[in-house]
Design a protein around this nucleic acid. Structure first.
Lengths: 231, 231
DNA sequence: CGGGTAATTGACCCGGGTCAACAGCAGTGG
DNA sequence: CCACTGCTGTTGACCCGGGTCAATTACCCG
């Protein structure tokens, strides 16, 4: 989501330093940080997919957002004493950690960066709200279509679409936890979506055949992504 | 949510000036700001209840958070070109507007205020995530109980609880839009809750008879409210 | 005292959940 | 290189929480 284009050339080196600094790898299906932990740093997803989720004591799980390559997690979260949610790797992930001290210095020295980060955080919040709308109001079919549209658009922004096709590392269990459904019903819904010909979800990839049509069934309105906004 | 206690005495006057500045009144059931508008200011709820919501083209509506007296809406939102959601008054509301220029100056001059605002924004985001968890995973009864717990706790923090009782301006339609249910089913669920004796929702007020019991059925874990955190 | 908003109730229905069995596939270790 | 194991996806029968529709009764405020 981080839009480097919005920053001046003078700011770029500051970010580059951060990115190559302290890069870690996380295996698929491991947690990057867990609810209750004391957050000490901010991190950037360099490669791979991750998700933010919350759980109920009895094991029910809700995924509340996906992190794609280039996304920044939890700006300023170190102000709080403990994490109120977990972040888990979906695929193998590379993350660049930025300590709170380093991060605050960056903000102090580069006001334009601070603004870009605010901007990023606001968009993240907007996406999470749209998510709540999906979970609360869209039915299974609309919700699945919406998620396809959103991920496609976000990956397109960072140049990860090739010929209407994106990588799709999400299992039916991920989708179920994201949409508030069961895996069984996600399976039925995927089959239905595939049958319409608007898009095809198959092992490892999503291909969109008719974006406008898909957006239509999803009641997808891209303005919540704020692509047009300059930081 | 704004915790004045966390600020030094030197910062208080700065905030007071803002609050008495440009106070407006909004009638119940009117929108304070609407999706698509160009946001130019930040505002503080001085009195009354409001809610943040999103709508689908066909009229389905999802409330994604409630604003209670003392809450600040949409920090820094003026960075974005247009609102991705609406804010509506539930009761008559008094709001103090703060222009973006005024707001930025405040942040520049008072770093402690900036930090308190970040802190507030992070808690707001945490509350919205818990909301998604409710909508996606809790059933009607658990969700209603959870909402009762949350509003009770938040009002208690700002001193608006008297003898286990809070004002409750929410109609069944508000609850339906918040929880992703229909008014009919909200009605059934309220009746059920009242029958258990854990709490009583009646016209205009909510009385909690057994907070621990209610938290138990709600799977309520207050840590997401970050009450313990100092700014 | 009238009109619009809010709550209540009941009959019926459906989207999605539950449970269970099975098949495919990928990694792992021997 | 094969066998094992644990994820992942698929399918089917049955069920239930919550939706739909509709009519009726409070309310509250002017």
């Amino acid at each position: 989501m981080l839009n480097y284009g919005a920053l001046s050339p003078a700011d770029a080196p500051a970010l580059d330093v951060l990115e190559i600094n302290r890069v870690r790898s996380i295996k698929a299906r491991r947690d990057i940080i867990r609810e209750g932990d004391d957050p000490k740093e901010v991190f950037l997803i360099v490669r791979g997919w991750a998700c933010r989720y919350k759980m109920l004591e009895d094991g029910r799980r809700q995924i509340v957002s996906f992190f794609l390559p280039g996304d920044l997690c939890d700006l300023h979260v170190y102000i709080l004493k403990e994490m109120d949610h977990s972040v888990g790797a979906i695929t193998p992930v590379s993350i660049a950690s930025i300590s709170s001290a380093q991060f605050e210095k960056l903000c102090d020295d580069h006001p334009r960066v601070t603004r870009a980060l605010w901007w990023d955080a606001l968009i993240g919040a907007s996406i999470e709200r749209e998510w709540t709308l999906t979970v609360g109001q869209r039915d299974a079919y609309e919700g699945l279509a919406h998620l396809c549209c959103e991920l496609y658009m976000r990956l397109r922004l960072v140049g990860l679409v090739e010929k209407q096709r994106i990588t799709w590392p999400l299992t039916q269990a991920h989708l179920a936890d994201a949409l508030g459904l069961t895996t069984t019903h996600v399976g039925r819904t995927i089959r239905r979506l595939n049958e319409t010909g608007l898009a095809t979800i198959s092992r490892g990839s999503l291909t969109i055949h008719d974006l406008a049509g898909l957006q239509n069934v999803a009641l997808f309105n891209p303005s919540y992504l704020h692509f047009n906004a300059a930081a």
